[in-house]
Amino acid sequence: MFYPNSPQTSPQLTQIPYGQQYAMMQRQIQQPYHPFATTEPQARLYPYHYQGPIQQEQGGFITQQSTAASPQYVQMRVTPVDQSIMSGYPNQTANGSSSSSFNYNIHPQQQQQQQQQQQQLRHHAMPVGSVPLQDDRYRKQLIVNYLAPDVTSTDLHELFSRFGELDGARIIYDKQTNMSKGYGFVYFCHAEDAKEAVERMSGYEFHGKWLKVGYSTNPLNIVPSNSSPYVHAGSRGAAG
């Protein structure tokens, strides 16, 4: 039997160049792979992502010199942007860049009308829970959420009447099932009393439920100042 490094198959040491006398086997001759043993700084910083320098080929596509990437890492192929796409944008300079302001050559009167329309939209648009300043009635009506099913309009009136005089209180019921929808409205005579009720009743436990109280901004629920107070009856038909 002959071994790869046996004296019968191995040459004389004098015939082997210096430095390879003890590297006779194939696994010894093959050098191990060192990912950080390279002179390129990109490979030292990113050993798993770097795959060699990027070269520009004919046709405008950018390719990489090395083989496919590892399945664990996804390499994105980048193509140059066609400058003709950006030619339609206004205020574009000769080098292809555009300024931040756009001039669509709008007539001054049209621009003024658009600004007025935007101001009107901001004036009428009102986020949930906010209180408008032009109508004091919005500051007097509250919406009470997360009410228990057994709470009546009379219970709601008695709960909030300790903060001040009320114009009314009612629970909203479903017309088909005649069941409470879980929320109601309270109408105060003074805005200061309503503000105190919002601050003190939010998070209050009532009939096993934690109440959420806020201003009601729905104009359909506003009680006119010259109208008669609501009837605080315990029956659902009268309260709904």
Rank of each mutant, 00 (worst) to 15 (best):
2 F>V: 01
3 Y>M: 02
4 P>Q: 03
8 Q>R: 12
9 T>M: 15
9 T>A: 11
11 P>C: 06
11 P>G: 09
12 Q>F: 15
13 L>S: 07
15 Q>V: 04
15 Q>H: 00
19 G>T: 12
19 G>W: 04
21 Q>L: 12
22 Y>I: 12
22 Y>P: 01
23 A>Q: 04
23 A>C: 06
24 M>I: 09
26 Q>R: 04
29 I>P: 09
29 I>M: 15
29 I>K: 14
29 I>R: 04
30 Q>F: 00
31 Q>N: 14
32 P>C: 09
33 Y>I: 11
34 H>G: 14
34 H>M: 15
35 P>C: 06
36 F>E: 07
37 A>D: 10
37 A>E: 01
38 T>Q: 13
41 P>K: 01
43 A>C: 08
43 A>P: 01
45 L>P: 01
48 Y>E: 12
51 Q>C: 13
51 Q>S: 08
52 G>H: 00
55 Q>H: 13
55 Q>P: 05
56 Q>R: 03
56 Q>W: 15
64 Q>M: 06
67 T>Q: 12
69 A>T: 09
70 S>H: 03
70 S>G: 13
72 Q>P: 01
73 Y>K: 11
74 V>K: 11
74 V>Y: 00
74 V>E: 05
75 Q>F: 12
78 V>C: 01
80 P>E: 11
82 D>Q: 12
83 Q>A: 04
83 Q>K: 09
84 S>W: 14
84 S>K: 09
86 M>C: 11
89 Y>T: 03
91 N>G: 05
92 Q>M: 08
93 T>F: 14
94 A>I: 09
97 S>G: 05
97 S>F: 03
99 S>G: 02
99 S>E: 10
100 S>M: 07
101 S>H: 05
102 F>D: 11
104 Y>H: 01
105 N>M: 00
105 N>G: 14
106 I>F: 07
106 I>P: 12
106 I>L: 10
106 I>Q: 13
107 H>V: 14
107 H>A: 11
108 P>V: 04
110 Q>C: 00
113 Q>S: 14
115 Q>S: 14
115 Q>Y: 10
117 Q>S: 12
117 Q>K: 11
120 Q>M: 15
120 Q>E: 10
125 A>V: 03
127 P>Q: 14
127 P>N: 10
128 V>F: 12
128 V>P: 02
128 V>L: 06
129 G>S: 11
130 S>L: 02
133 L>A: 02
133 L>I: 10
134 Q>G: 15
135 D>G: 14
139 R>M: 00
139 R>N: 11
140 K>P: 09
141 Q>C: 04
141 Q>A: 01
141 Q>W: 01
142 L>E: 06
143 I>G: 05
144 V>F: 14
144 V>P: 11
145 N>Q: 12
146 Y>K: 12
146 Y>F: 10
149 P>V: 14
152 T>L: 08
152 T>A: 03
152 T>V: 09
153 S>N: 04
153 S>W: 05
157 H>T: 12
161 S>R: 12
161 S>M: 14
162 R>G: 08
164 G>K: 06
167 D>M: 15
168 G>Y: 12
171 I>P: 04
171 I>D: 15
172 I>M: 00
172 I>K: 05
174 D>W: 02
180 S>Q: 07
181 K>F: 12
181 K>G: 08
184 G>Y: 10
188 F>D: 02
191 A>T: 10
192 E>K: 08
192 E>C: 06
193 D>K: 09
195 K>S: 06
195 K>N: 14
200 R>I: 13
200 R>V: 09
203 G>Y: 02
204 Y>G: 03
210 W>N: 08
210 W>S: 06
213 V>C: 04
214 G>K: 05
214 G>W: 08
218 N>G: 08
218 N>M: 02
220 L>Y: 00
222 I>K: 06
225 S>Q: 12
226 N>W: 04
226 N>Y: 04
229 P>D: 13
229 P>H: 03
231 V>R: 11
232 H>I: 11
233 A>H: 15
234 G>E: 04
234 G>Q: 06
235 S>V: 08
236 R>A: 09
238 A>M: 13
238 A>R: 00
239 A>S: 11
239 A>V: 11
240 G>T: 08
